[in-house]
Amino acid sequence: MAPSNLTIRGVNGRPKIAAGGKSAGGKAIWVVSGNNITIDNVEMYGAKVVDKNGAALRLEGTNFTMRNSFLHDNENGILSGVNTASTIVLENNEFGHNGYGDGYSHNVYIGKAGKLTFRYNYSHDANVGHNLKTRALYNTIAYNRFSSLRSGETGSTAAGKPSYEIDVPNGGTTFIIGNVIMQPVGGNNPNIVAYGEEGVSGYATDLYVVNNTFINDESSRGYFVMVGGGVTTPAKLINNLFSGYGPMSTQASSIKTANYQALSVGFVNKAAYDLRPLANSLIVNAGVAPGNSTNGSSLNAAASYKHSASGINRTMLGTKNDIGAYEVQ
């Protein structure tokens, strides 16, 4: 796909593009080599290649946007290379059960791009790999749901056994705001979010984790936020709700403000993945105004995830912010 400044949009329903194990150039269903490409409302599945990293979409151009789409059961959902001039925007999409099963292929794998914006997405059940992996220099990961089915369950895809829910292996200025992040029992890595664990040379190292709801269903293993030893900038953890076993952060210098943790938090219907918290005086009006990042960006959670692959505006209902990804109704 070489043309630039192009929008491809499914109409009169969502087109289903079944690769059936075939690919373009031994890479992907679509190889996007043009610049300023937008893809809207498609479903893509079944990509396989000899190298075991066949993607629904292989990004090779500069600047890419995808909305309202469903990528599932490929060896990679999206795979991009190195292009620090590129901005990638992924919003209102579902990614499910992508990955060859070797741990090197993922639901979404963004290479060293300039900027990634990942919002209002539902990423789940990566097959051994990560639900999101990004090496971008600047990451905004906001108002998404990262969760996977329990063993034996079937949803829009089969159940997977993901590794990290979010992996930012080289660091970079990273905002993780307003997400619902749930780790099932028996995943391939007990840690939930990883940052800078592969080395941070050439990257900024400021991490902001604000107003997320974390749930660890493992009873005896896992960290909520694992920060690599080479990261010297203290991560900021503000207004997060942590349910389940595990320390909040591996980084001793992390700055933790107005977070709440309990082994079991009450939710509207956890069994059905309705992860809005029940009223609790330690959550309601218990947050703080999170302020701004070092570069002046607001850390305020302005929206909340709405299932499926959508969002709603978040309005403070009381005198202070509530802790977690939702205002308690």
Rank of each mutant, 00 (worst) to 15 (best):
M1A: 14
A2F: 13
N5T: 06
L6F: 13
L6S: 12
I8F: 09
I8N: 06
G10N: 00
N12A: 13
R14K: 11
P15H: 04
I17Y: 08
G20A: 01
G20C: 11
G20V: 13
G20P: 11
S23Q: 15
G25H: 06
N36G: 09
T38I: 13
G46E: 03
G46W: 06
V49R: 06
G54P: 09
L57C: 08
F64L: 09
T65W: 08
S69T: 06
S69R: 00
S69V: 09
F70T: 01
L71R: 00
L71W: 00
H72I: 02
H72N: 08
H72W: 04
D73T: 12
G77R: 02
S80H: 03
G81D: 14
G81L: 10
V82R: 12
V82K: 14
N83D: 14
I88D: 14
V89D: 06
G96A: 08
G96S: 04
H97I: 02
N98V: 04
Y104P: 06
N107A: 07
I110R: 09
L116T: 08
F118W: 13
H124I: 07
H124L: 11
D125L: 05
N131A: 03
K133F: 07
K133T: 15
K133C: 15
T134W: 01
L137I: 04
L137P: 01
F146P: 01
E153Y: 07
E153C: 01
G155W: 01
A158L: 13
S163W: 06
I177D: 02
M182G: 10
V185N: 12
N189L: 14
N189T: 14
I192S: 00
V193Q: 03
A194S: 14
S201E: 02
Y208R: 04
S219Q: 11
S220P: 03
F224Q: 05
T232R: 10
T232C: 05
T233C: 03
A235Y: 05
L237A: 07
I238R: 00
I238N: 02
I238D: 01
Y245V: 13
M248Q: 13
A252K: 10
Y260H: 11
V268Y: 05
K270I: 15
K270Y: 10
A271H: 12
A272K: 14
A279I: 08
N280E: 07
A286T: 11
G287V: 05
V288I: 15
V288T: 15
G291T: 03
N292S: 14
S298A: 12
A302L: 12
S310F: 04
I312R: 09
L317N: 14
T319H: 12
D322I: 14
D322N: 12
A325M: 08
Y326I: 05
Q329T: 14
